[in-house]
């Protein structure tokens, strides 16, 4: 079968993975927007959320047959909610422990990155110790099967669930940033933190909430990711780097850019993985990253959160 035959299937798969990258990428972009730094430990927030959601779903799952109907919906919702909560808690603690003390001292940017790397090492390996170092599947929360076809491509229940949940989150986040007072605060801090302080924005609060929102998204995204690819202590790294790539691709600090970047990267990777070898999929993402940084470091949309030029 040639590429043309597979095109739509690859597109559907790419869209699904891409929507997850987009969800994670938002965490990078939001934090970058308010603090101008890369939250290197974001991938661990994602991982912890995945485990949280997985354990919750497993705990609530009644024994016996695969659930269906409302039970499935409830279980997926519970997994998403607990995953999001765990992600938010992890992001909150991360901000408290690894970032805030440095901010108090107005440390150089390098220090934040290093501190985040330390936190990431700590979290990954602690998770490996507590939860074991093997892949952990999410139990079946619904009967997976082909739901319908699009141009001959099979669309599974799983794909619909993941894509649907991701799109809902993306839309909610977009509304949040564009419409709410908190979103206004985030945009104000992103534009000019010093002035935002003078205008009465509680910058500390905005920073914490930004981390928490990023954590909510990453945690829920982690659960969705684990439904497709299993969970493991080191699951965060690769999607983390890819989501970062997506954020840069769209223009880091730009909310819609991160969404666009995630979807594009998912597609590129899906097509590329078919054309080349699947084992070089990760290389493709890195090459995309390096390529963008060389050619257009400001990304496709380029506009920073709330910044006009």
């Amino acid at each position: 079968m040639g590429f043309a035959d597979q095109f739509w299937q690859l597109t559907v798969d790419g869209l699904m993975v891409g929507s997850l990258y987009a969800v994670i990428a938002l965490g990078y972009t939001l934090v970058y927007g308010v603090l101008q730094l890369i939250n290197f430990a974001h991938s661990e927030v994602f991982m912890l959320g995945a485990f949280g959601g997985l354990f919750a779903a497993r705990g609530l799952l009644p024994g016996g047959a695969t659930p269906s109907g409302p039970a499935s919906v409830g279980l997926v919702a519970a997994g998403l909610a607990v995953g999001a909560a765990c992600g938010a808690a992890a992001a909150f603690i991360l901000e408290r422990v690894a970032y805030r003390p440095l901010r108090r001292r107005s440390a150089p940017r390098l220090a934040y990155l290093i501190s985040a790397i330390g936190a990431s090492l700590f979290a990954v390996n602690l998770a490996g110790k507590e939860f074991g170092r093997q892949n952990v599947p999410v139990p079946d929360l619904f009967t997976n099967g082909t739901l319908f076809h699009v141009f001959g491509a099979q669309v599974s229940t799983q794909t619909v669930v993941v894509l649907g949940a991701a799109v809902v989150m993306l839309v909610l986040l977009d509304r949040l940033v564009a419409r709410t007072r908190l979103g206004q605060g985030i945009r104000a801090v992103a534009q000019d933190a010093d002035t935002a302080v003078l205008m009465g924005v509680n910058v500390e609060r905005v920073i914490i909430l930004t981390f928490v929102i990023g954590g909510l998204l990453a945690g829920a995204g982690g659960f969705l990711y684990a439904m497709t690819f299993n969970a493991s202590y080191n699951m965060g790294f690769v999607p983390g780097v890819k989501a970062f790539t997506a954020a840069v691709l769209g223009g880091i600090g730009n909310v819609r850019g991160a969404m666009l970047g995630g979807i594009l990267l998912g597609l590129v990777e899906s097509y590329g993985g078919y054309v080349f070898q699947a084992s070089y999929k990760d290389v493709i993402a890195f090459l995309v990253l390096v390529g963008i940084l060389m050619v257009r470091p400001s990304g496709l949309l380029g506009v920073r959160l709330g910044r006009a030029a």
């Binding site: 603090l35 101008q36 730094l37 901010r103 108090r104 107005s106 150089p108 390098l110 934040y112």
Partner: peptide
């Protein structure tokens, strides 16, 4: 360099100055 960054304006790493101005502590 670290002492100066903590106290007064000035020393910043090659990676740029402190991410957020000194106004918020």
């Amino acid at each position: 360099e670290i002492e100066l960054a903590g106290t007064t304006a000035g020393a910043s790493d090659q990676l740029g100055a402190a991410p957020i101005g000194r106004t918020i502590t």
